[in-house]
Computed example of a mutant assay.
Amino acid sequence: MEKAIYHNIYDNLRKEILSEKYKKGEKIQSERKLMEKYGVSRTTIRQALFYLQQDGYIYKIQGKGNFVSSKLINQNLNKFYSFSNEVNKAGKTPTSVLISYKMQDCDSRLSEIFGINEGSKLYNIKRLRLIDGSPAMLEETFIPEYRFKNFPVDDLNNIQMYEIFKEKYNVSFSSAQERFKPIKAETKEDIKHLNIKKNDIVIEIVRKTYELNKVIEYTISHVKNDVFSYTVNLNL
Rank of each mutant, 00 (worst) to 15 (best):
M1V: 14
E2N: 14
Y6M: 08
I9E: 10
Y10M: 05
Y10E: 10
N12T: 14
L13G: 11
R14D: 02
E16H: 09
I17G: 03
I17W: 09
E20K: 15
E20P: 03
K24Q: 14
G25I: 01
G25V: 03
I28Y: 09
I28Q: 10
Q29E: 13
Q29Y: 05
E31T: 14
R32M: 07
R32S: 13
R42A: 08
R46S: 01
Q47A: 11
Q47K: 15
S69V: 00
L72V: 00
N74M: 11
F80K: 12
Y81V: 12
Y81E: 13
Y81P: 00
S84D: 12
N85E: 15
N88R: 15
K89C: 03
A90P: 05
A90R: 09
K92R: 15
T93D: 04
P94M: 01
V97N: 15
D105M: 05
C106S: 13
D107I: 06
E112R: 13
I113D: 05
F114N: 14
F114R: 08
G115W: 09
G115D: 10
N117H: 07
E118F: 06
L122Y: 10
N124L: 13
K126I: 09
L130W: 02
D132N: 15
E139R: 04
T141C: 13
Y146A: 13
R147W: 08
F151V: 03
P152K: 05
P152H: 09
D154Q: 14
D155Y: 14
Q160L: 03
E163C: 02
E167Q: 09
E167I: 11
K168W: 08
V171F: 04
F173I: 13
S175F: 03
E178C: 08
R179S: 12
K181W: 00
K184V: 00
A185L: 04
I191A: 02
I196D: 03
K197I: 03
K198T: 02
N199F: 12
I203L: 15
R207I: 05
T209S: 14
N213M: 09
E217D: 15
E217L: 08
Y218Q: 05
I220D: 02
N225G: 08
N225W: 07
D226R: 03
D226L: 03
N233F: 08
